[in-house]
Amino acid sequence: MQDPNADTEWNDVLRAKGIIPPKEKEVSEEDIVNILETTIQNKTSGKSFEDMSLDELNEKEDDIDEEEERIFEEYRRQRMAEMKQAQLKARFGEVREISKVDYVTEVNKAGEGVWVVLHVYKQAIPLCKLINQHLSALAQKFPDVKFLKSVSSVCIPNYPDKNLPTLFVYYEGDLKKQYVGPMVFGGMNFKQDELEWMLSEVGVLKTELEAPPKQEIRDVMDSALRQSGRGDDDSDEDDW
Rank of each mutant, 00 (worst) to 15 (best):
M1S: 15
P4A: 00
D7R: 15
D7F: 13
N11C: 05
N11E: 04
V13I: 14
L14F: 10
R15V: 07
K17A: 13
K17E: 15
I19Q: 05
P21G: 08
E29I: 09
E30D: 13
D31R: 05
N34F: 08
I35Q: 15
L36C: 10
L36N: 12
E37I: 13
N42T: 13
N42V: 12
G46I: 08
G46Q: 10
S48V: 10
D51G: 08
S53P: 09
D55W: 06
L57M: 06
E61S: 14
I64A: 08
D65H: 02
E67D: 14
E68V: 04
E69Q: 14
I71K: 09
I71D: 11
R77V: 06
R77Q: 15
M80H: 10
M83Y: 13
Q85N: 12
A86N: 08
Q87Y: 11
A90Y: 04
F92W: 04
I98Q: 01
S99A: 07
D102L: 03
Y103Q: 00
Y103L: 04
E106S: 00
E106P: 02
N108F: 00
K109W: 08
E112D: 05
E112W: 00
L118D: 03
Y121W: 07
A124G: 02
I125Q: 03
L127H: 01
C128V: 00
K129T: 09
L130P: 07
I131R: 00
N132Q: 09
N132K: 10
Q133G: 11
H134F: 07
L135P: 00
A137F: 09
L138N: 00
L138E: 04
F142E: 03
P143T: 03
V145D: 03
V151C: 08
V154R: 06
C155H: 07
P157V: 12
P157R: 12
Y159D: 02
D161E: 15
L164R: 00
L164S: 04
P165H: 03
L167V: 08
F168Q: 05
Y170N: 02
Y170C: 01
G173D: 00
D174M: 10
L175R: 04
Q178S: 12
Y179G: 07
V180P: 01
G181V: 01
G181A: 00
V184C: 02
V184H: 03
N189M: 13
K191C: 05
K191I: 03
Q192E: 15
E194G: 09
W197C: 11
L199N: 12
S200M: 11
E201L: 03
G203W: 06
K206S: 14
T207E: 04
L209K: 05
L209S: 05
P213L: 01
K214C: 07
K214M: 05
Q215Y: 06
D222M: 07
D222E: 15
D222L: 10
A224Q: 06
L225V: 02
L225C: 08
Q227F: 11
S228W: 01
S228N: 14
G229I: 06
G229Q: 05
R230D: 09
D233E: 14
D234M: 11
D236N: 14
D238Y: 11
W240C: 10
W240Y: 08
W240N: 05
